[in-house]
Design a protein around this nucleic acid. Sequence first.
DNA 1: GTACCCCTCACTAAAATTAGGTATGCTGAG
DNA 2: CTCAGCATACCTAATTTTAGTGAGGGGTAC
Lengths: 207, 207
Amino acid sequence: MSIKVFIYDDNEARRDSLKALMELSPELQYAGEGINCLNVIADMQTYFPDVVLMDINMPDADGIVGLKSIKKEFPHIKVLMQTVFDDTDKIFECIRNGASGYILKKDSPQRILQAIQEVYDGGAVMNPGIALKVLGYFQPQKKENPLSGRETQVLELLAEGLSYKMVADKLFLSFNTVNTHIKHIHEKLHVSSLGEAIAFYYKNLHQ
Amino acid sequence: MSIKVFIYDDNEARRDSLKALMELSPELQYAGEGINCLNVIADMQTYFPDVVLMDINMPDADGIVGLKSIKKEFPHIKVLMQTVFDDTDKIFECIRNGASGYILKKDSPQRILQAIQEVYDGGAVMNPGIALKVLGYFQPQKKENPLSGRETQVLELLAEGLSYKMVADKLFLSFNTVNTHIKHIHEKLHVSSLGEAIAFYYKNLHQ
DNA sequence: GTACCCCTCACTAAAATTAGGTATGCTGAG
DNA sequence: CTCAGCATACCTAATTTTAGTGAGGGGTAC
């Protein structure tokens, strides 16, 4: 039983070469193709592929639209994203939406076939450059924290949703002291409201 | 110029086979080996490898200890973790500590050599099963959002640090309307302050 | 020792947020 | 049609946050 692969790509030459590539691989079966994702649901219902090889940049309905539709309606179908760019934002958007992998068009044909196989086997696949970015997300991003220890502690609690009074209670401080810390936080972060301070916390200091 | 690879593994047979494997690859050069990471700093200073293939489970000083030491003292040396288990906790600990990849011992020799090359080239490499777990980390962020569209929009801006007035300006609403939306947000989220609402946003809705 | 930062606390007052009520128009579901 | 939810808007009042000024003690660096 071979793996049925559906291809989305707006470039005909590329679709043809991918198709040819698959016809040379007994374990892969070309299931169909599309130039964009306008009819993605119908395509899936008609050809029921195991794996979709999805170009990102396509006119009218791009690969991310297609990915979302497929994972919403047919979550069992694996979607392998493929693009010429390694745009960080798009990578993470695809990952959040359930893509099983992210490879580049410059990757070798052998690697692409291998990726399809691995995705079909339930794994995930990333181009090494992509993987680096994804792993980089976990690296402790040590932004400069201009706040003192106590100030950081106060901001952490505020970011949890506590009011000034609750922070004072929790840290066994007077409200006035908490107030002072917060004034210093505002000065150091160049902000002037609780919301801005919390936004700074989650963007720069959290975990 | 071939890639100098240092191997840590407590299993002699495995070290030997990896060594043999490398001697068959002109682009890879065996630089040395260790049965644990007790002398990791000295090893690096003596053999200055480009890539370290690091077993995780070793007696006395394991691969994670070694990884941390290497990345602290020689951050330019790439470390490729290798283990028999795909233990989720260890995976993330390695990633946080700067590992360039995570592969399994059952991966094919060809794949291991390929991984070393890709790590050396500045990429990151993961076994497909590992990659699936890593990508899965990004998934769970789809909590139900009980807020209406406009309410969500208001909360997004508040979470960016804007005041009620600024939100009103930005959305071309009256302050009163923004106020009403926020009251509804408080009711729906079961919170009673801006801080709590923003905390909810960053924990459940953001991204 | 002096200067600087941190942590603590107090008082005051202005500004913003929270909370209550009320109201209109629109839309979609039953 | 009716009801519910949404988006819009206004008013009032209590509460909280923001901001200013001042101050004592502890620690450290020069």
